[in-house]
Design a protein around this nucleic acid. Structure first.
Lengths: 340, 340
DNA sequence: CTGAAAGCGCTTACAG
DNA sequence: CTGAAAGCGCTTACAG
């Protein structure tokens, strides 16, 4: 019970290998009648193209690669990446492409993975997230001419299509929500400093704060982990004039801080309001439930996949803008406390 | 700047293609001296084998496939799958293998994915989780002779190596923990009925309960989702003699139920103790934090990957047993309430 | 120890 | 519209 090849089909139908190939790929060069016969026989035999043979002769792997470049701890706790993977895979498989996945705990490993994938022609293109400060990846991708799409970052990026997110409106929405509740000292627990959108968010929050009178922004660095978020929160609160509201760059830091509010010596939202930049089940089940920006990551990943497929197919793809996030108001944000 | 091939290396060194291939694959047939020269030149040129060419001629894809067969909602909320993916990938890449990933929302799609992967020779083997009742997958894998390892299930399985988990001790530990606290009416909110380990856990809990006097087990079906867990909890509590403790088959159902305990009209743990079969950040951040069985999923997945690689390499692999889970006692389990 | 050759299963110009 | 042939980049028996 060997797997059938186009030679078997050609013999059965009584035509050449080439005719079979043309028919199966829907190209010209075969009459409608023989084409139908070929397709019938192929289906009967349960024929499917060998991916290796097709890749070798057509120089197309029909595969897209993604490197997940975060620590195992962050990967485990953040639902974000699984949503990315799910959104990508569904779009790719609908177009006959496969998804190849790798982890990288450090930037060197990630770069090496791209080099290797491309040298071995394992992938036709890659999808990237989390543009960093002095990020070496765009230059490498351009140098090797690897088709690539950057997901969830700023635009433009020379030579690489970007699915970008407008932090401007989100920052307005966050600051607006809190100032409407009377907060004017607002903390910001940031993500890792090496991520570009960390700086971007800070800039936009500053701008949004500056556009209102009397609003002070106090920032501290977190690292997207529980421990980092709690530590930054403790530092913000342990000052002469602590903030009455804190914006967290992700859900994990916000949730960990709310879960340990008592230890930190505050009540949420009576003493401090909390707002998370990402939403997830975590934000819903913690008490009080956390006001958060929701965001259909799966749909965004699907869009990014389409951009990448277009880039692979045609050599070009336009930048595209993500849907703005939506503020889900829950119990963690309330009117600012009045001091004597 | 075309990618170098073994022909380029052969020409540069002045030997045949075959000699280059032998040298690069560490096989006999080349003197140590020429082997060294060949390796040097290959490294200089940045040569890497074309995965397609190698796959075509060796009939090995150097790729392992995994189908994630849960609903998008469960995938998004359960950290389990990302841990599996992470554990697998690290082991596979260390052995020169790639990980190919697909989603399947229904069993038919999953079977079709295996058929397709195998027909196209995209993978050398697959790793499966969640054996179901009347599961059609083992038969298909045997029929197509796809190397496969089943992860986290019962043993033995005819013809397919299993990384199995001993629910016996866990059930003892769960029942023991609760009866030590004085609970004798214990609820069990189960996972989906179609999963084999759902029945298995029920059986072991019944046995463990029967081995102690006066312990009653009350079960209800959940489906691993928030809504399913809360609904099952409500049903269990809305009875003449509700349980004073509830065991949940996963973390999501336990956490959702604890988060909505007030709505359900109970205090945790004053009225009802809660224990989760899986641990995650969710269990830690909810209030009260949930007593749970912790389990190094990543390490287990790494073990499963090794079994699969051995199976692919040698044609056989032994069953292996997972490390027993460890009970992490937190705030959600306490002494049973005393009724008048 | 080494080389010339066939083969893996496709795709794709190129003649007819 | 169709067929014979070369080629993709490797691996692997098989002679020397």
């Amino acid at each position: 019970m060997k797997r059938p090849t186009i030679i078997d089909i050609a013999r059965a139908v009584g035509v050449s290998k080439a005719a079979v190939s043309y028919a199966l790929n829907g190209r010209g060069g075969v009459s409608q009648e023989t084409r139908d016969r070929i397709l019938d026989v192929a289906a009967d035999m349960g024929w499917r193209a060998s991916s290796a043979a097709r890749a070798l002769s057509s120089d197309r792997a029909a595969t897209v690669g993604v490197v997940l470049a975060r620590s195992p701890e962050v990967l485990r706790t953040e639902p974000f990446f699984m949503q990315v993977v799910a959104g990508l895979e569904q779009t790719l498989s609908a177009h006959g492409f496969s998804l190849q996945l790798a982890l990288a705990s450090d930037p060197g490993t990630e770069l090496e993975t791209y080099r290797q994938w491309w040298a071995e022609r394992r992938v036709d293109g890659v999808l990237l997230t989390d543009l960093r400060v002095d990020d070496p990846r765009p230059a490498l991708l351009r140098e090797l001419r690897i088709p690539a799409v950057f997901f969830g970052t700023e635009r433009p990026m020379a030579g690489i299509p970007v699915l970008w997110v407008d932090e401007h409106d989100i920052a307005d929405s966050a600051i607006g929500h809190l100032t409407d509740l009377g907060h004017n000292r607002i903390g910001h627990v940031q993500g890792p400093g090496q991520l570009r959108h960390t700086a971007r968010r800070e800039r936009e929050l500053r701008r949004a704060a500056a556009e209102r009178t009397g609003v002070t922004l106090l920032r501290d660095h977190g690292d997207y982990t529980e421990g980092g978020g709690v530590a930054a929160t403790a530092r913000l609160l342990d000052t002469a004039r602590p903030p009455t509201a804190i914006i967290y760059d992700n859900d994990v830091m916000a949730v960990a801080s709310v879960a340990r509010a008592a230890e930190l010596g505050v009540r949420v939202p009576a003493d401090v309001s909390v707002l998370a930049w990402d939403d997830s089940m975590l934000c819903r089940v913690v008490h009080p439930a956390i006001t958060a920006f929701s965001h259909d990551v799966g749909a965004a990943a699907a869009r990014a996949a389409l951009m990448l497929l277009e880039l692979i197919e045609t050599g070009v793809a336009d930048d595209s803008r993500l849907q703005p996030r939506e503020l889900i108001t829950r119990e963690s944000t309330a009117v600012a406390p009045v001091f004597g």
